[in-house]
């Protein structure tokens, strides 16, 4: 068992989940209630990572975050560090890669709240923030939690994008799924088995949790 890889995966998944909670809430609420031209295009863009091959996403991110890109250059000037083959680069990639997994359940949950409930809250004197935490949040919480759990689980298991952006640097960018690949390459089947089992159990628990939440909500 590669414990540093395990903890790196957990750290990456947890931070991604927390950041995506806020980004997801913003995007989901925006898409659920606003009508504007080109809405379908934005929705497609948010959902794109669902169908895009991870290597394609990884390739574009590599070009965008690399030393020779303006963004990569700016980042290096500001921090003295590079984005590719670093934890920060992995985090940016994970945020994009897991975005639809966080947004979709949240979006469905917010869409299910009738507009009249929010209007009734406003007419009862609740401001937008009070309406959010007194009405929207309690009604959408299972969708929000589903989104967080899915984002966490999806980040934990990602492989292609991580390999493209982060490579395989122990303690820095080697996640559990990379470690499994690494162990198989080295004919260390026993370690690969243990780590695979950990991921399998974890994936089963999280997906059961999501189904349980959905059932309770309906």
């Amino acid at each position: 068992m590669d414990w540093p890889a395990f903890f790196l995966s957990l750290r990456l998944a947890a931070i991604t989940m927390i950041i995506l909670l806020f980004i997801g809430l913003l995007i989901a609420r925006f898409l659920a209630w606003r009508q504007f031209r080109g809405k379908a295009l934005i929705e497609a863009l948010v959902a794109l990572p669902l169908v895009l091959p991870p290597t394609v996403l990884g390739f574009y991110l590599l070009s965008f975050l690399g030393k020779n890109s303006w963004f990569g250059h700016l980042y290096e000037q500001m921090t003295g560090d590079t984005l590719v083959f670093s934890f920060s680069g992995l985090l940016i990639a994970s945020l994009i890669y897991s975005l639809p997994f966080a947004v979709q359940p949240m979006l469905r949950a917010f869409e299910a709240i009738p507009k009249k409930l929010r209007e009734a809250a406003w007419c009862s004197g609740l401001n937008r923030w009070q309406t959010f935490y007194k009405i929207e949040l309690p009604l959408a919480w299972s969708g929000i939690l589903s989104g967080m759990v899915l984002a966490f689980a999806h980040t934990l298991g990602e492989f292609g994008v991580v390999l493209m952006i982060g490579g395989n640097i122990p303690g820095k960018t080697r996640t559990l799924s990379i470690a499994i690949f690494d162990r198989v390459q080295a004919f260390d089947d026993q370690s690969a088995q243990i780590m695979s089992l950990v991921l399998l159990i974890f994936a089963f628990v999280t997906i059961s949790l999501v189904f349980l939440l959905n059932k309770r909500n309906s």
Binding site: K116, L117, A120, W122, C123, G125, N127, P138, L139
Partner: peptide
């Protein structure tokens, strides 16, 4: 003036009660 400041009492069609 925003709805919050108008102090209007409104009964919606189908009532729009907060289900939770």
């Amino acid at each position: 003036v925003a709805p919050q400041q108008r102090h209007v009492g409104i009964v919606f069609q189908n009532y729009a009660l907060f289900p939770h």
